[in-house]
Design a protein around this nucleic acid. Structure first.
Length: 595
DNA sequence: GGTGAAAGCGCG
DNA sequence: AAAGCGCGCTTTCACC
């Protein structure tokens, strides 16, 4: 019994009365049907257990009651939505598609040959591009005409073979072997992502409409522009002295600006703000309104909010660093001005939490920089950096820290980062080393073991060309520039990626605690959250370092404690007893606040 | 008429 | 024209 399989792979560790994995896939013997196989520690397998074509939810519910070690399946979003709809939640799974991606790329995994050979599992990072295969009741069946096959294999035999490959790969990882923890975190993320869509964000359509109307005027007829937008547009044209100026096309707008004597080189907001001209303030206002309308206007509302819920689709592992991406509705870009539309159901509250300075704290923990950990202990990290004497103001501290993590070289950041380097040498060495590796075209790896992609062929080609004897200055400068760019990417990768791992651990822990709450009986609150999540606190929103839980009133205080405890638990899970605390801003309210 | 790149801006 | 990372989405426009 290896340490990896025995304790770490389970997140969080638990006593399981049934310490076996349960793999599910399309049956090889019963065409069109599903089947399961149970696996034990020593590689033993049960015979195929047939699952009735329409009986997956029942099967899973029954087995789940026995607390299997993990469900093993190809692709969580192909299976889990239908289970939730049927009222069945699972505690833990192993998502083969996501885990394959991590293991195939991680340089910590010594035996990757078998995974690399399994090309059918190497899929594009974003499988949401095309419609997914239908989910239930024929789980993995193709629906005539409309859908395509899942992006990864789904037969039970393929599932079992891939799981074998992955277990070997996990065991072959270099010490300290944290990759199983990463796979557990990634897989619980896959469950959470589906659950978030299923439960939805409680959305107050009237409040959204009120915010839009206040800014833009009443909702216009389809195809027409809102009154306030038109009025501000006229103001801009008047100030430009150009009644026909086009404001929506950057090239045309630029010409109009030039004609009015504004020497701008682009029409981006920050550059326009540099110029003094009566047309500038209304133009900035116009751009603000136009953005609100096109990105989150009434059309967005019609398309994305149904029955009081906004249901975005999250894409775990959608970003190379391991952050989630989203698909549809722009879940990760909801403007703060619209946050008040996020509103708890009657009888419920929102418990919101965001982590203060997550990434620098993660950097302090993974680098073991005690001075940086101390700067953030029990207070605002930037205030602590000021107190340490490294920089003079909180603003400077922030610029310096961001510059350290992003690779800032010029301006304030270029001036301040060296001071940070003196005050926090261990933390800075970690990111500086990561940057140096990237500049040489190397690969870096997060705390738990997610590796960065190598530079592309073009990058390699430019470097090779620049090192040839006949290379000119232009080529050398170009090569240097893109080498530094890649260094900034790898510098940031280790921090952003490890922060994403912490966030997954935080949510995984929180999810488990939330489900231990007693459902609220009587009138069922949060009915629109579906059979699994109504009546009990559930995650409703996630944004990199921020969560919102939708909870019955009676549970709100306890939920806040659970969020806090989960953050500390995540810190311990990843970093042991590193003296870094992850501070939260916690808020309990009926609606999310702008800020 | 569809496709893809670029610009611009929202989020962390 | 961002300096300094990672994304998604809408609009415009050149091009096939």
């Amino acid at each position: 019994m290896s340490v990896v399989r025995d304790t770490v792979v389970d997140m969080p560790p638990r006593e399981s009365p049934s310490p076996r994995w349960c793999a599910v896939g399309r049956s090889g013997t019963a065409p069109g049907g599903l089947a399961a196989v149970e696996l034990d520690e020593s590689g033993g397998r049960s015979p195929e257990i047939p699952i009735p074509a329409d009986g997956l939810a029942n099967f899973v519910a029954a087995r789940e009651a026995e607390a299997p070690r993990r469900w093993v399946w190809a692709d969580t979003p192909a299976v889990y939505p239908a289970l939730l709809t049927a009222g069945v939640r699972v505690e833990r799974c192993h998502d083969l598609r996501l885990c394959h991606q991590i293991l195939r790329n991680s340089v910590l995994v010594r035996d990757r040959a078998a995974l690399h050979a399994a090309t059918q599992w190497a899929v594009a990072p974003d499988p949401v591009e095309e419609p997914r295969a239908p989910l239930m009741p024929a789980l993995f069946e193709l629906e005539a005409g409309s859908a395509r096959r899942p992006t990864v294999p789904d037969s039970l035999s393929e599932v079992l073979a891939e799981f074998d490959r992955q277990r070997s790969a996990i065991d072959s990882a270099a010490e300290p072997n944290r990759i199983a923890l990463l796979l557990a975190a990634e897989s619980v993320g896959a469950l959470i992502a589906v659950e978030l869509t299923s439960a939805g964000v409680p959305w107050d359509t009237e409040e959204h409409d009120r915010i839009l109307s206040e800014a833009l005027g009443p909702r216009p007829a389809p195809g027409a522009k809102p009154a306030a937008l038109l009025a501000v547009g006229e103001e801009v044209r008047a100030a430009l002295g150009d009644p026909s100026a086009s404001l929506d096309s950057p090239p045309k707008l630029l010409r109009a600006l030039r004609a009015a004597g504004i020497e701008a080189s682009s029409t981006s907001r920050w550059e326009l703000a540099e110029h003094e001209h009566p047309a500038i303030p209304p133009l900035l206002h116009y751009k603000k309104l136009a953005r609100l309308l096109s990105a989150n206007g009434w059309n967005w509302l019609d398309e994305w909010v149904r029955d009081g819920r906004y249901r975005p689709v999250y894409v775990p592992g959608g970003v190379v660093t391991g952050r989630w991406a989203s698909s549809g509705g722009g879940a990760l870009q909801i403007p703060r001005s619209l946050r008040p539309a996020l509103r708890a159901d009657p009888g419920c509250l929102l418990v919101s939490a965001d982590v203060s300075q997550l990434e620098p704290r993660v950097l302090a923990a993974m680098s073991g920089d005690r001075a940086m950990a101390a700067a953030g202990a029990g207070r605002d990290l930037y205030a602590g950096i000021v107190e340490s004497g490294a920089v003079a103001t909180r603003q400077d501290a922030k610029i310096a820290v961001l510059g350290a993590m992003y690779g800032g070289t010029s301006g304030d950041s270029g001036r301040l980062v060296p001071r940070l380097r003196r005050a926090f040498p261990a933390a800075m060495r970690l990111v500086d080393d990561a940057a140096a590796i990237g500049e040489q075209g190397g690969i870096v790896t997060t705390w738990l073991g997610r590796s960065s992609p190598p530079p592309g062929e073009e990058w390699q080609g430019v470097q090779a060309a620049a090192s040839l004897p006949g290379a000119g200055r232009r080529e050398e400068e170009h090569a240097r520039r893109i080498a530094r760019e890649f260094g900034r990417f790898t510098r940031n990768f280790v921090v952003q990626g490890t922060a994403a791992e912490w966030a997954l651990a935080w949510m995984g822990e929180l999810r488990r605690r939330l489900f231990a709450f007693d459902p609220v009986h009587g009138e069922t609150p949060m009915a629109a959250s579906g059979p699994v999540f109504s009546a009990r606190p559930h995650l409703a929103f996630f944004l990199h370092d921020e969560v919102i839980v939708h909870a019955p009133r009676a549970h709100a205080e306890a939920v806040a404690s659970a969020i806090e405890e989960s953050a500390q638990a995540a810190g311990r899970l990843l970093f042991g007893d590193a003296p870094v605390d992850f501070r939260l801003d916690l808020r309990i309210s009926e609606r999310a606040l702008k800020d």
